[in-house]
Amino acid sequence: MGVTLGINELKAVTSEMARYENMDYTGLSFSFLKRRLAYVFDKLKVRKLVAFSERLKNNDFRDDVKYYMAVKVTEMFRDPGFWRSVRHNLFPVLGKEFNVWFPDTSSGEELFSFLVLLKENELIDSVKIICQHPSEKLCNEVSEGLLEVKDEELNHSNYKRLEEHDRFETYFKEENGRLNFDKALLKNCHFRIGAPGVAQDDEVFDFIVFRNSGINYAYSRHEELFKNIVEHIRPGGFLAIGVKETIPENLSDFLIVVDKKESIFRKAGKKNE
């Protein structure tokens, strides 16, 4: 029988976790937290809250918690129409050289999809990418190009919906039950450990990909998170969120809709303003 958490216990657990670096989960919605912590407790065989608090003192355990708190992106090329829109609407505007931030790289699927798109548009050598997540283990896994084999068929079929040709298998090798993404395509990706959506003060990006992470947050943190993210978009740069997410109302004046269906927005202004 797993641990069932009520609201007061969730508050207590998240306060305890927030004492540690990059473990502030207090802004997540209660219903998400309830489900996710139950999942984490199950994965890490936590039977009692007291034991959880004790085990949090261990660095490796904390990294495991951060690893399992992440909701992995469901598949490569999720929403093929979104990737098509990036290729048609963003690449011609962004030019040859631009930088991209994945503020919550919860698994490889979204990043690898983007890298394939860059490769097929001959941008792979000139675009710089920063990938961020609180879990070191997760960053290492993604930087090694690892993916679960079970999703290969779905990933491949999404790719075929996006592209007229089929070169999907050239990007992967299967080894020991896992798929290894072509590491050469990761050469311009920099992985760093950090809380989702928190950039360095002076950083600005031409394109920020933050899809389906904001949905896990409660209203107040959701607004704060997006305010921070929008501040780090370069004038004239782009933001992508999940197709069923919305931008907090107080930020909508700062962003122009580029593709409503695929939830792509552009910050007003030009690159060097």
Partner: peptide, 21 residues
């Protein structure tokens, strides 16, 4: 419920969506 999202009903009469497993 949108395709490829879980749908949850919340205490405050809102819908929340999720891409969990």
């Amino acid at each position: 419920a949108p395709s490829n999202y879980h749908l949850f009903v919340e205490f405050d009469s809102t819908i929340s969506l999720s891409t969990e497993d």
